[in-house]
Each structure stands twice: as C-alpha cells, then as structure tokens.
Write a protein that binds this DNA or RNA. Structure first.
Length: 819
RNA sequence: GCGGCUGUGGUGAAAUUGGUAAACACGCUAGGUUCAGGGCCUAGUGGGCGCAAGCCCUUGAAGGUUCAAGUCCUUUCAGCCGCACCA
C-alpha cells in the first residue's frame, strides 16, 4: 500500500541527529531544586571488560526506556552511570600482555561509551563515576577509616579461603558452589592476618529489614534470608570431667536428655587441653588428616562422617551422666561454639555418627506422650511431639520443653537463650595490586596506624612491575611500601593489601548524588534529596554479594547520621539473561550479537524494541535473529502509517470507525502505562503493535487521515518515545510537533473514550460457552438474560431443561445454570 | 535434605488476577503484488468429528472446590536456581 513519494524509514540516516539533539537539550542533566518529584533510576554499573554485546544491553535498554518514561511522566530523573573499574581481570590482562590496567580500562570504557551512545542509551554523564580514579577511591579509603573508627573494620588472623589461581583470599560470599566465583578454582584454607568488615553486627537488621523491601523480588529476599541464616536456640555448658567446661550451641535444648556424646571441631582450642595421653596419637593423626581435606570435600553431605574419641568425658548437666567427647570434622569450628551435644535420636547427622561408632541412641521426643520404644531406624527430627525419658520434663510439648529447659539452665547459670547466624564477617583484604590500597601503616612502635584522613588518598602506584608468580607487585615496590609512621615519624611499612572491589560498589550510588564533591564522599543534602534509589535494575548474580554489602554500608552510614535512609534500593528489578544457540550470550562463547551490527542492519530502535519484546524481562530469553526482523517490520509499518500519504482500501474490510480507533488508542495508553510501571515491557510492545494493526485496519477500511487520525498518530509517537526514541523524535518532527518527544507529557487515558457503547457478552449454559452476543454496555442482568435466551444456539443447548438461575458478570459473561 | 521458581501451540509467549485459553510476534501453507530480494498485502494455522451449522477434547499428570479453574486446594512428575554436615 502507501505507494507514495513519502520518504522511507531510514534509521541510519536519522538516528545520529537525534542523539545529538538529546545531548544538546541536556536530557538527564538534573539538579536537586526542580519543582518536580524526584526519581532515582539506576542500572548496576559494569566492569569495563571490553566491548558490550546485546546481552548486556537488555539491562541498559530497560533502564534507559524507564528513565525516559519517568521524564515524560513529569519526574526529575537522576539517571547516572559509571564503571566498576578495579579488579582482577585488568590486572591479569596486564600480567599477560603488559598493558597497564589503567590503559586497558580506559580503552574499554571508551568502547563501551561509544556503544551505549550508538544504541541511544543516555546518562547523566556529568556525574560519571570511575572507581579506580583517585577522586573516588580517596573516599573509599576515607570510609574504610570511618569503619575502623566505628569498630566495624578489624584485622584478625583467621583460616581463610585462598584461591591458588588468583593468588588472593576470598570472602565467603565469593565461594560459589564450592569454587572461586571468578575463576572456578577450588579454594584452599590458609591462616592469614586479614582485614574484615563486621557485617555480622548488622545481621539481625539486615534480616528484619528485608520485610521493608516489598518491591524487591521474593527470590532475592529469600536468598538473602537464607544467607544470613538465623537460628534460635540455646548455649549450654557441659562440665568437662576433671577440669573446665565445654559450651555447645543447640536449636533443640529440649533434647538434652538424649545427649549421649559430645562432638567438637578438630580446630577447637579445647582439643589439646582435654585429650588424654593414650588417645593423643589418634587425635593428632585425625587432625592432620582433616587439614589435608579441601573445604568442599569436608562440607559435602556425601562425605562419610568420621571422628575419634579424645579419651575425655563431659557431664550432662541435666542427667549427670558421663558422656564421651569426640572430635569430628562434621562439626564446624566457625559456627556456633564449634561444639555440639550429640543427640542421635533426634538429629540425622548425630544418628549416622552414633551408628557408625556404636554410641547409645536414646529416644527423648515421641509423637505421643509415651516413648515409641524399640530401635529407631532414623532420627525423629520434627518439632511436633512430646518429651519422654526426660525426668521432670517428660510430657511437655517440644515448644514448652525448649522454654522450660532454657529457663532452668539460665536459673542454674549453665546456659542461656542464644541466636546464631550463618553470616560471617566480610573479608575485604585482597593480596592483589589493582584495587584500593587499604590506608593503614605498620609502625614497629605503634602497631597498626591509620593514615590520617588529610593525607588521603594513599595513591596506588601506576608504574609497577607485574610478576609472573602472581605475587602482589606492591610488595616489591619500595617507594610504596616504605613510609614513615604518622605518629612518631620513624620508618614504617605500608599495608600492601587492597580492598575487595565489592567495597567500591557498596557506595557508588551515593557518589552519583554529588559526583566531584570534594569535602567528603558525598554531599549529605544531595544524598538526602535523591536517596533511596527508586528503581534499581541489574542481574540476579548480585542477589547476595553486592546487594547485601550495599545494604550493610547504608545501615552503617545511617547509624553515623551520614545518610537519612537505611535501605539503599527501594525497588529492585532482576532481569534475566539473554541466550543464543542455547548458551548465555558472551564474548568468549562467540555467540554474542554486537550493537554495531544491529545498528548497521536495522537501526538502534529495532534492537531496543526487540530486546524489550522478546520475553518477560525477569526471565532468561533466547535471542532469535528472525524475531528481530519482526520488530523491524513493525517499526517500518509505523513509519508508513504516519508518514505515508496514499492508502489502499481493501474491499469488504468493514466500515471504518474513528471512534473504534480512538478507543483502541486509549486502551493502548492504559495498557502500556500499567505494563511499563510493572516492568512488563514485552506486553507493552505487543500493545503498541496492536495499535499499529488497528490503525492499518482503519485505513484499509477507507478511514480518512483527518484530525482524529492525526491525534492518534501523535499519541502513538509519544508512546514510542521511551522505546524507539529516535524514530519517535523523527515522526514527531515530521508531524510538526514542538520540541522533543522525550520532553512531551506522556499521553493520558480518557476514561470517557475508553467506554464501549457495545460489549461482547459471553453466554454459557452450565459453564460451557454457547454464544457471544453484542449487547449495550451497562445492560442489567434481566435484559442480558432475556437476550441470551433468545439465541438459537442457547436454546438448542438448553433443550427442554429449565434455567434455574443465572450468574451474571456485568458486560462480560452470563452463565445460565440448569441444575 | 531445606528453600524458591517454572511447566500453556512447531517456536518466543499472552490471559484484565477465578469469567471467551493461545493476544502479540516468529515459523509454516496458499493466494496476490510493474514482486530482484529475507519487501508489502490478504487468508489460514492447537487436536479430533462433521458437507455445514456446530459438537467434543486441550494449559506436565491425577484428584478436589466452584455456576465457572491455566489461575485456588491436595497429591504427584519433570526441569531450573539458591543454600547445603549451620547443630
């Protein structure tokens, strides 16, 4: 159709022009004092590892579309971007190729910026943050010193996870499926002096406040709750025969009468004290053996439980029985007290252990008030039961037994109620070069001395020698290591460890609110205006790591009154990944689609709309090259509908109704608005396609390009604004619109035009569809029923049966029930 | 083992939150187009029966609640993800 002299849609010809126009107009250049409601829109900043592909862009396109939408909705939108630029990949590249990290990082940033620009993805570039720049990491160091001052940073010798390939320690959160999150190597254990952040001090609040995050995906909240891992129970003291006592943690103090042995971790400090001379050899051999095991071997559920008797005995404080103390590697030194009471009848692990070593199994919880008697063939672990064989406590329910035994232990001074968390403190030291230097100095006289904050930043030397053995080059850079003590001026040594890059990303969203601020990490007034982030968008892989650390930072800063809200991200959206040929799109797999190709073949807008259309944004989706063609056809059709001049009328296409078209327009506005608010971009794109189809039907039925038509075209153009922004601008200009589309008001739904004069009412007989009848909207039940019963189809279905009652859903459905 | 999510056409998926299952798009079939093309237009496209009007079946499986179930409940199967000897 549209055989006209009108120009064809040529994306490559129009797109660059509009990108310049947005920059010139200062899109996303914002300040705090605008008389509009604020909206902080944020996508997770990337590690600049190289060219971006369309898999990455799903995130950025959604963020850009949402930011543009919020601008059109009248918000003062902060939409910043930056680079998480410290970290191992750049350092490893330097070791291999000799290119200094800063050089490769800056090159990658330039490429990425070019690609973002090409796709029409625009940010508040005047607020750009790069974590490896001194004006940023200076404040990361400053915050470290604050944490030190607040008692939230400390140094301690600990058995830590060591990645032999990356030559550095790892936080617990960075062991994923038992291997290094970055390189997949099995970590080993090392005893090292390391810096920690005391995230455990916030365990309860980090757990409680998950409830406040009602606009976060449930799965992320559940993952964080599991990671924090709160257990309620008690600590109980068991006297050690001869001397001292052994403290255990248990969630089931009600089972204490069934404790027939004790188990302590091989690393437990009491082991050497209690072991008897004739068992020492066995115990030492066992400890030696478990040291050689990797963490994964030891923590595997399939790992058969082993242990040895220490020769020592404890006294069960409730039964006064003498019970043997064992060591076994299924008890972890780092959880609870590193010791347990073995209750084989009511704990599957203890049951397995007792069977193997022929330790007594005594039933103390029964489903009824009587012991079930006989030998148990598995541990009875539920909380649904009663205490038996438990002296004065027999007959109590589990719940009452727990309360009473804790109360008695507290009264006797041999125990107390206790809550334990699985969460461990955050290990932040890294024995690597390309990171923020930890700003402390070791003085022979004064020990650990923080670098005074007016001497920040501690500069990371940028000309260092990379070593093939993977050792931190800072160790071999005398100009960095050798310094003087800030307290006494005597020669001293600088800390050569750098910080985990997750420290950098734990506060970058605050820096955006006042990038370039020189009196502190951020300007409190500006942070107060912008925070919290109203919409955060990023990958699910950060469900625990980055999102937990950032929450911890925000709470620490809140307690120090540096910020006024204690949660950083009010709403979170975790987008799914894009796959192609059955694998996640990536450079290394060679299945990436690069934006340059998409832009050259189809234009940026087609790539953008396709990424929004291809599936539910929170689920993984398969990239389909043919699907892109479908979206390209849609955008070309929109162009022809709005710019074309002659229209082919199809005979028999029915009457053209401008009222129907206008109603479809308002239905579309309504649908797109609700969908975008809910992040249902895929169905929003479908709705726009439906409107285009309706516009085409109208013209083919002989509809005129009159005033009403033009109005629909203008609304269609504005609705396309956030998603296909270049096309929308061009169409807007060609329709004689003033200014830029992105600064137009988002179309409003007209409730009057939305109303249909006629509705299609579904008629059912006994719940089965029998007819569809056009009725005037608002028809009452009696009339609707009368009309339904006139239908020949309905009469045939009814036969001789009488209608006993009808269920009427106004304007939608009537069900005639015969029985 | 514990926790969470997902099962709908040949494919990606939709379904106003209990009210027309399969919108929108890909693919396919047929036709048209002064149609070079992967362009554009029209019609068709879950399965079965029927010349037709129409009828029956269909949302992993089996039950249940309801006038009405993809949606709620119970059981079950499959796949994915998180945690995993956490006492």
């Amino acid at each position: 159709m549209a055989r006209t002299a009108a120009p064809v849609y040529d994306p490559q010809a129009i797109e660059p022009k509009w990108r310049d126009a947005w920059k010139k107009a200062g899109l996303f250049r914002v300040s705090e004092d605008a008389g509009k409601p604020k909206f902080y829109n944020l996508v997770m900043f990337p590690y600049p590892s190289g060219p971006l592909h369309m898999g990455h862009f799903r995130n950025y396109v959604m963020g850009d579309a949402f930011a543009r939408y919020k601008v059109m909705r009248g918000f003062n939108v902060l939409n910043p971007f930056g680079w998480d630029a410290f970290g191992l990949p750049a350092e490893n590249a330097a070791i291999q190729s000799g290119i200094p990290p800063r050089v490769s990082i800056e090159g990658n940033i330039a490429i990425s910026k070019h690609e973002l620009d090409l796709m029409g993805v625009l940010y508040a570039w005047d607020r750009e943050v790069t974590t490896c720049n001194q004006d940023y990491y200076r404040w990361t160091q400053w915050l470290f010193l604050k944490f030190l001052e607040w008692g939230l940073a400390y140094k301690q010798k600990a058995a830590v996870n060591w990645c032999p390939k990356d030559n550095t320690v790892l936080a617990n959160e960075q062991i994923v499926n038992g291997v290094c999150w970055r390189c997949g190597t099995k970590p080993t254990k090392k005893e090292l002096e390391q810096w920690f952040f005391k995230i455990t001090a916030y365990a309860q609040r980090l757990l409680d406040d998950l409830k406040k995050l009602d606009r976060w995906p449930d799965r992320v909240r559940v993952m964080q709750a599991n990671w924090i891992g709160r257990s309620e129970g008690a600590e109980l003291d068991f006297a050690v025969e001869g001397d001292g006592s052994l403290r255990v943690f248990t969630t089931r103090p009600d089972t204490v009468f069934g404790a027939t042995f004790m188990v302590i971790a091989p690393e437990h400090e009491l082991v050497q004290k209690i072991v008897t001379p004739n068992h020492r050899r066995n115990v030492d051999d066992y400890i030696e053996k478990t040291k050689g095991e990797t963490e994964i071997e030891r923590l595997s559920t399939e790992h058969e439980k082993t242990g040895v008797f220490t020769g020592a005995y404890a006294i069960n404080p409730f039964t006064d029985e003498r019970i043997p103390i064992w060591i076994a590697d299924y008890v972890l030194a780092t959880y609870g007290t590193g010791a347990i009471m073995g209750v084989p009848a009511h704990d599957a692990r203890d049951f397995e252990f007792a069977r193997k070593y022929q330790l007594p199994i005594r039933e103390v919880i029964s489903p009824s008030l009587q012991p079930s008697g006989g030998a148990l063939d598995a541990a009875f672990e539920t909380y649904d039961g009663f205490l038996v064989n438990s002296g004065p406590y027999s007959g109590l329910s589990v719940k009452d037994g727990i309360a009473k035994i804790i109360a008695d232990a507290e009264r006797r001074g041999i125990g107390k109620r206790m809550i334990t968390f699985r969460l461990r403190d955050w290990l932040i030291s890294r024995q690597r070069y390309w990171g923020v230097p930890i700003p402390v100095i070791y003085c022979p006289d004064h020990g650990i001395v923080p670098v005074p904050s007016d001497q920040l930043p501690v500069r990371l030397p940028e000309h260092v020698e990379f070593r093939s053995d993977g050792q931190n080059p800072l160790l071999h850079t005398p100009s960095f290591v050798n310094t003087t003590c800030p307290k006494c001026g005597k020669p001293a040594r600088r800390e050569t460890d750098t910080m985990d890059t997750f420290v950098d990303s734990s506060w970058y969203f605050l820096r955006y609110t006042s990038a370039g601020y020189e009196q502190g990490p951020f300007d409190k007034a500006k942070a107060d205006y912008w925070m919290p982030v109203d919409q955060y968008i990023g990958g699910i892989e950060h469900a625990i790591l980055h999102l937990l650390y950032s929450r911890f930072f925000m709470k620490a800063l809140y307690d120090a009154k540096m910020v006024s809200v204690d949660e950083p991200f009010a709403a979170l959206f975790s987008q799914g990944m894009i796959q192609r040929n059955g694998a996640v799109m990536s450079k290394s797999k060679g299945n990436g689609v690069v934006p340059d190709d998409i832009v050259a073949h189809y234009g940026a807008d087609t790539g953008r709309v396709y990424e929004l259309f291809l599936g539910p944004p929170d689920q993984d989706a398969e990239w389909n090259d043919r699907g892109v063609d479908g979206v390209a056809r849609f955008l070309h059709r929109v162009w022809r509908l709005i710019i074309g001049e002659e229209d082919e009328v199809i005979a028999g296409a029915g009457p053209a109704s401008v009222e129907d078209l206008s109603r479809k327009r308002h239905e579309t506005i309504d649908k797109v608005t609700r969908d975008v608010d809910a992040f249902h971009f895929n169905t929003a794109m479908s709705a726009l396609m439906e409107l285009a189809n309706a516009m085409q039907d109208y013209l083919q039925a002989g509809g005129q390009r009159n005033e009403a038509w033009d109005s629909v075209c203008r609304d269609m153009t504005r609705l396309l604004g956030p998603f296909a922004p270049h096309l929308a601008e061009e169409l807007w200009q060609r329709q004689g619109g003033e200014g830029l589309v992105v600064f137009q008001r988002w179309p409003e739904v007209d409730a009057v035009q939305l109303r249909r004069p006629q509705v299609t009412v579904v008629v059912q007989v006994d719940g089965r569809l029998r007819d569809r009848i056009e009725m005037p909207s608002g028809i009452d039940e009696a009339d609707a029923r009368a009309r339904a019963q006139e239908s020949a189809n309905v009469q045939r279905a009814l036969g001789r049966r009488a209608v006993r009652r009808a269920v009427y859903v106004p304007d939608r459905l009537i069900n005639l029930v015969t029985e």
